[in-house]
Design a protein around this nucleic acid. Structure first.
Lengths: 349, 349
DNA sequence: ATGAAAGCGCTAACAA
DNA sequence: TTGTTAGCGCTTTCAT
């Protein structure tokens, strides 16, 4: 407010109020109880600080206290419904704890991941949540070297606690759901459920495939190897794989488990070429969730990961100072076709 | 690496290398050119620092240099395609400039906005990008008081530069597109385009309505007031408004301009009740973009805002130290129905 | 109930 | 080419 050039510091307030920097510091950092500041002094200092538009310098405070007030999270990508939902929960829950959230994206590059973690360490973040890392162990080692408490989310790490979706439970539910809707089809090879998309080497996909197989087995029809098409996440690859399958079967399979939204995008580019009747012969489900996917031409069962729960569990692990490599699993929810999921933020647009 | 308890500082490196802190500082902050450090000294210091796992303390550096290396952005919500896309661009472009991006969400609350800006000021961010603020002017005043360079994005502010989508151009294109696709319909009131969703008081919506009207006029059929239903963004409100319109017209309007994805979600909950034929009598378009919306039961023209361009323009304004309240407009793109837009990150899932 | 002074880790004059 | 030193803004003993 005043036309000065430098920012107001506690020394300015001390001068203006006729007290000492340490008193001002105590008042302005909420330690007036411990230091038995006279109410009058406290009020005066607070008034003067407000008038001067004082704002503490957190770099200085952090340097002195050896606590920055920052908490970091790395994600592969902001532009992704799952990760941006994690970001939202991380952000909200950080602020509830009086911490400032710093989110950085790494574009699924192992080098960028390391660079980013290094930067966050330099800024003295107090803990780190590592989501969907391509190289969890390298990052874990960096955190250990910097004595930085950390938790893995989505993709688990080896030497620190992890929080993951209960992929098995979600995939099992979803598979049972589409098996229940699966129409009877004459053609033998078409009359089975197929799993499409993802990479079998991925932790999450591997568990989902396990559950898919288990549910098939429990339904009395164990899955053959050719029923699992883990052809990656890239939409165009999935489109090709699906097209080939369609050709081989002479139609859509009677049930289709699509592993995640990106593969679903790929599948869509094939689906749009088909007549509406084609979907009467197929029960389709997808892991992960998108509101508009709920309203596609055909009914689509989806599994929605509990992002708020994943992040809450991560904070719990950090706060309980857990360092053993436990794995906490959080159950996802099944979303019925033609349903708009209403989350806590749904009305905020 | 070494089992010490404190983090390694330049003093440790100085001792280990037999040189002075200032020399170490010069080497480790890349100033070895300015200070003419002997190559041998430089190499030794670098080696020792690497061995010790040294990482600079950015709080101390920032305090001393009065430059934190942080750049802030506030958005209403992470959990939103448009804003998370802005985040991605902001993040990527910050890192290209050697800055650390700090993104905070405000949940569309004016109080939270102010609190968050205050916090970012405390952390000495070097500049701030304010996206979709509910109270731009209050935030602008705070930034001015803190001498913090800032730019508004999406929703413009009064006393600082702003970057916005060319809402007029986008809405004009979209209106012309659906007018061109508009089927001939007997019923007079049905045979017209309608505008649905958003709030007429909003800057963006107001400009879109202007363009909608202009395109109607240019097509020789000026819009009546009842053709504009700016009933808010909340899905359920839009659903109600659309249902009422449908009832009044005895069917869908021949052309429908849906203002943004949230209203589209609301419209969907009405659309799913209709038979497929209903959509043959209506040309539908929406401002904003979602990949799955591209594959709904009916062809949907969409307008995709150029988020990377918006952010690039914001950085330009900051770097050119512009402080006048100019408004830079960035053109959006039309996305054809049944098209998957392929952005730079599309393959990263 | 309050003040004086040291020091967090770093950089930038100024010396040498 | 390198070292010495002051000080960024704050908190925290230790005095008083």
């Amino acid at each position: 407010m005043a036309g000065s050039n430098r920012k107001t510091t506690i020394y300015d307030i001390a001068r203006l109020s006729g007290s000492s920097p340490s008193t001002v510091s105590a008042v302005l950092s909420g330690k007036s109880g411990v230091r038995r500041i006279k109410d009058a002094t406290r009020e005066m200092i607070e008034r003067i600080a407000a008038e001067a538009g004082y704002s503490p310098n957190m770099q200085a405070r952090g340097l002195r206290r050896a606590r920055s007030g920052l908490i970091g999270m790395i994600i592969p990508l902001h532009e992704n419904r799952f990760f941006s939902s994690l970001s939202q929960s991380f952000d909200t829950q950080a602020r509830e704890r009086g911490l400032v959230p710093v989110i950085a994206s790494t574009l699924r590059s192992p080098e960028e991941e390391k660079r980013v973690v290094g930067t966050l360490v330099s800024y003295a973040i107090e803990s780190l949540i590592i989501c969907g890392a391509t190289d969890p162990d390298a990052l874990g080692a960096m955190c250990d070297a910097a004595r930085l408490p950390h938790v893995f989310v989505d993709l688990p790490g080896k030497n620190a606690p992890s929080v993951v979706t209960n992929n098995y439970a979600g995939a099992h539910l979803l598979t049972r759901k589409i098996l229940a809707r699966m129409p009877r089809v004459k053609h033998k090879a078409r009359g089975k459920p197929y799993f499409l998309g993802g990479s079998a080497r991925d932790y999450a996909t591997a568990r989902r495939i396990e559950a898919f197989r288990a549910a098939c087995r429990e339904a009395g029809a164990p899955a053959e190897p050719e029923q699992v098409l883990a052809c990656g996440y890239a939409p165009h690859k999935v489109a090709v794989a699906l097209e080939r399958l369609h050709k081989r079967l002479g139609g859509l399979p009677a049930a289709l488990f699509i592993n995640s939204m990106n593969p679903l995008e790929g599948a869509m580019s094939h689906f749009v070429k088909l007549p509406a009747e084609a979907f009467k012969e197929s029960a389709i489900g997808a892991f992960d969730y998108d509101p508009f996917a709920s309203y596609l031409e055909f009914p689509l069962d989806m599994v929605r990961q509990n992002t708020a729960g994943l992040i809450a569990a991560a904070y719990d692990l950090l706060e309980s100072k857990t360092t053993e490599p436990v794995i906490v699993e959080v159950d996802p929810d099944l979303v019925e076709p033609r349903t708009l999921y209403r989350g806590p933020m749904s009305n905020l647009g």
